[in-house]
Amino acid sequence: MKNKFVIFGLISILISLFFGGVAYQELVAENMDEVYLNIGYCTLFLSIAVYMWHIKDEKQKNNS
Score class of each variant (00 low, 15 high):
Lys4Thr: 11
Lys4Ala: 08
Val6Lys: 09
Val6Arg: 05
Val6Trp: 05
Phe8Pro: 00
Phe8Asp: 13
Phe8Arg: 03
Phe8Lys: 10
Gly9Val: 03
Leu10Gly: 07
Leu10Arg: 13
Leu10Gln: 15
Leu10His: 14
Ile11Glu: 02
Ile11Asp: 01
Ile11Cys: 05
Ile11Ser: 04
Ser12Gly: 02
Ser12Cys: 09
Ile13Trp: 03
Ile13His: 00
Ile13Pro: 02
Leu14His: 04
Leu14Tyr: 10
Leu14Gly: 11
Ile15Leu: 02
Ile15Trp: 00
Ser16Gln: 08
Ser16Ile: 10
Ser16Val: 09
Ser16Asp: 07
Leu17Trp: 14
Leu17Asp: 13
Phe18Gly: 10
Phe18Met: 14
Phe18Thr: 11
Gly20Gln: 09
Gly20Glu: 14
Val22Leu: 12
Val22Asp: 02
Ala23Gly: 11
Ala23Leu: 11
Ala23Arg: 00
Tyr24His: 05
Tyr24Gly: 05
Tyr24Val: 14
Gln25Phe: 15
Gln25Met: 09
Gln25Asn: 12
Glu26Met: 15
Glu26Gly: 13
Glu26Thr: 12
Glu26Lys: 15
Val28Asn: 11
Ala29Cys: 05
Ala29Asn: 12
Ala29His: 13
Ala29Gln: 13
Ala29Thr: 09
Ala29Ser: 13
Glu30Phe: 14
Glu30Ala: 12
Glu30Asp: 15
Asn31Ser: 05
Asn31Cys: 05
Asn31Arg: 09
Asn31Trp: 00
Asn31Glu: 13
Met32Asn: 05
Met32Thr: 07
Asp33Lys: 10
Asp33His: 06
Asp33Ser: 09
Glu34Trp: 08
Tyr36His: 13
Tyr36Pro: 04
Tyr36Gly: 10
Leu37Phe: 15
Asn38Asp: 04
Asn38His: 08
Ile39Asn: 04
Ile39Ala: 09
Gly40Asp: 03
Gly40Asn: 05
Gly40Ser: 13
Gly40Gln: 01
Tyr41Trp: 03
Cys42Ala: 15
Cys42Glu: 05
Thr43Cys: 06
Leu44Gln: 06
Leu44Glu: 04
Leu44Asp: 14
Leu44Ile: 04
Phe45Asp: 00
Leu46Cys: 10
Leu46Val: 11
Leu46Glu: 01
Ser47Ala: 06
Ser47Cys: 08
Ile48Ala: 06
Ile48Gly: 03
Ala49Lys: 01
Ala49Leu: 00
Ala49Trp: 02
